[in-house]
Simulated assay, not measured.
Amino acid sequence: MSTFNGLPAHVLFVHVIVVLVPLTAGLLILCAVWPAARARLIWPAVVLSVVVTALMPITVDAGEWFQHRLGDPPVVDEHARLGHQMVYFVAPLLITAALLVFLHLRQGRGRPLGRTVVAVIAVLVLAAGGAAAWQTYRVGDSGAHAVWNGVIDH
């Protein structure tokens, strides 16, 4: 999909990503460090991690279409480079969500994992969530600079 109602689809998808990636990261971190939150929020967090992972290639494809439509301005190259890297930041969200589901199901069956394993999972979730949120900021910031510094004419 290249446009939606006359707007570049990338612009619309990006706003979804900018909201959902940090939200997903935050929910996963909450689930990792607070067992009561995990009991209530694990499934919405897993659904969000699947959604952001599925939306990432769609957003990148729409961005490539938009970039070519603009004539490949050099300042957009940095944004595109960072955007292509996002898959390496959302995939760990999905992986750590799966680890949290494993932890949740084990505890629900009365077979909790050891503290060390739980701590390692929590550290992995914190690292994946923090990295995904930071990369989302970097990609968004480079795109905003491209727009607001006059590269994209309206």
Rank of each mutant, 00 (worst) to 15 (best):
62 A>P: 03
64 E>W: 10
65 W>A: 15
65 W>L: 11
65 W>N: 11
66 F>W: 15
67 Q>M: 12
68 H>G: 10
68 H>L: 11
69 R>W: 15
69 R>P: 00
69 R>K: 15
69 R>S: 15
70 L>V: 09
70 L>S: 10
71 G>F: 05
71 G>M: 06
71 G>W: 05
71 G>K: 10
71 G>I: 07
71 G>R: 09
73 P>K: 05
73 P>S: 11
73 P>N: 11
74 P>C: 08
74 P>V: 11
75 V>M: 09
75 V>Q: 11
76 V>A: 15
76 V>R: 04
79 H>P: 02
79 H>S: 03
80 A>L: 15
81 R>W: 14
81 R>G: 00
83 G>R: 11
83 G>N: 08
84 H>K: 14
85 Q>T: 04
86 M>T: 09
90 V>S: 03
91 A>E: 04
93 L>I: 09
93 L>W: 07
94 L>H: 01
95 I>K: 06
96 T>F: 06
96 T>V: 13
97 A>G: 07
97 A>Y: 08
99 L>T: 07
99 L>C: 13
100 L>V: 10
102 F>G: 13
102 F>L: 12
102 F>H: 12
103 L>M: 09
104 H>Q: 13
104 H>S: 14
105 L>T: 14
105 L>N: 11
105 L>P: 05
105 L>I: 12
105 L>Q: 13
105 L>C: 12
106 R>T: 08
107 Q>D: 15
107 Q>K: 10
107 Q>W: 00
108 G>V: 09
108 G>D: 05
109 R>M: 14
109 R>T: 02
110 G>R: 07
110 G>Y: 05
110 G>M: 08
111 R>P: 00
112 P>F: 13
113 L>Y: 09
113 L>T: 02
114 G>F: 12
115 R>Q: 10
115 R>E: 11
116 T>Q: 10
116 T>G: 06
117 V>E: 03
117 V>D: 00
117 V>G: 00
117 V>F: 07
117 V>H: 02
118 V>G: 00
119 A>R: 08
119 A>K: 06
119 A>S: 09
120 V>R: 05
120 V>K: 05
121 I>Y: 02
122 A>K: 01
125 V>K: 03
126 L>R: 03
126 L>C: 13
126 L>M: 14
126 L>E: 04
127 A>Y: 02
127 A>R: 00
127 A>Q: 01
131 A>K: 00
131 A>N: 04
131 A>G: 02
131 A>T: 02
132 A>L: 01
132 A>W: 01
134 W>H: 11
134 W>G: 08
134 W>R: 08
136 T>P: 01
136 T>K: 06
140 G>W: 13
140 G>I: 11
143 G>L: 07
143 G>S: 05
143 G>T: 04
144 A>V: 06
145 H>E: 00
145 H>P: 00
145 H>C: 00
146 A>C: 02
148 W>H: 13
148 W>Q: 07
151 V>T: 15
153 D>R: 15
153 D>V: 14
153 D>M: 04
154 H>R: 14
154 H>T: 07
